[in-house]
Design a protein around this nucleic acid. Sequence first.
DNA 1: GACTTTTCTTGATGAGAGTCAATTTTTTTG
DNA 2: CAAAAAAATTGACTCTCATCAAGAAAAGTC
Lengths: 205, 205
Amino acid sequence: MDRIAGKAQTKHYQKGEFLFRSQEKDDALYIVNHGKVRIYRLSDSGKEQLVRILNPGNFTREWALFNPDVVHEEYAEATRDTSVCTIQQHDVQEFLKEYPAISLKLLGEMSQRLERSARQTAQVAVESVITRLVLFLAENVEPGMGNSPTITLPMAKKDIASYLGTTPETISRKFGELENEGLIQQLSGKRIKIQDLDDLLLYSE
Amino acid sequence: MDRIAGKAQTKHYQKGEFLFRSQEKDDALYIVNHGKVRIYRLSDSGKEQLVRILNPGNFTREWALFNPDVVHEEYAEATRDTSVCTIQQHDVQEFLKEYPAISLKLLGEMSQRLERSARQTAQVAVESVITRLVLFLAENVEPGMGNSPTITLPMAKKDIASYLGTTPETISRKFGELENEGLIQQLSGKRIKIQDLDDLLLYSE
DNA sequence: GACTTTTCTTGATGAGAGTCAATTTTTTTG
DNA sequence: CAAAAAAATTGACTCTCATCAAGAAAAGTC
């Protein structure tokens, strides 16, 4: 750990700054220390799709580690003041060779991410927006909260829209629809009360 | 290699048989020897989304290696007579610990897959069907074939539809549209002639 | 080669969701 | 706390694409 820390470099970003942009070649691994980072992609037509949100402890750019020469199409933007550690590709490789256990951990993390990503693709591809939204809400219920939990949205609604592959207007309408149906209540400040989780999950026309 | 082969077990499947289905718990890694396997997911509403197609040399179920207790939601169906090697989770772990280089290879492969999957999600989320189809065709051009290549579709059109998150009817129409625009020609037996790759890529309204 | 089965195509119709525009509400900032 | 900026909501309209149905073509089988 100490040795890794020795190679790591800490960087700070203010809200709105980019850790990196598509095209930029830079083969370091980024690990978030404090703050919050949005990872998104831009389509040809300029629309963005949120890939994920990095919280403290999360990392990204593992792609750069193993395929350093291919340019990568993601943008990483700090959504508040953020500090990250970066470790150069070369150094990471060294550590992985030296401590194989790290590779196993990393493989586990990556296989989880792959699973999530595949599920996300399948949902966007075949489910309606209301279904995706319901599933999104259900995923964000902290386990063990009973059947009528209150959750806090992990991101702004416009980001939920982007994550789910739709628009803020549509998300707004779908939240309204769920509320009209008596399935949820929108409390103040990103808090949502779910009346009955089972009912909610059943509501997918 | 010999030692790995010693632990591996070969299985044969006929066309239409399943290597595994969602829910089934079985923590082996599958490597395709001969044949072709469709990996897909099923939505609640019963629609399927093609995740990928396995050709000889490809593997799947790496998820099972690192998260053996979580059930996985994919179906794997042999689309022709197929033989695969399976290696038990436990054995793979052993090899990885013993030969760290394998982990690095595996990480490289997984990071590529993750990249593809993220791109796939972004496309399905924000691009129109015609754009997705164009990108799909462009991806299937073998490199170094000039600007007016002929390609062979790697799967049936209905599978392309499923892969791109749309329906066979729509795919059929979009192929028709591209042909009317003079951008491609549909030859017999899954062969497509692209008139001008650059023009094709520009055609995304 | 004839028959069966699957895949592909084409048409008509409708619904879900995107777009544009105007307000309102919430959050941020000095 | 007031002003500014960003996010969320609502309405009207449009359009892409899914659905259902039916027939044509291609692939697989005996």
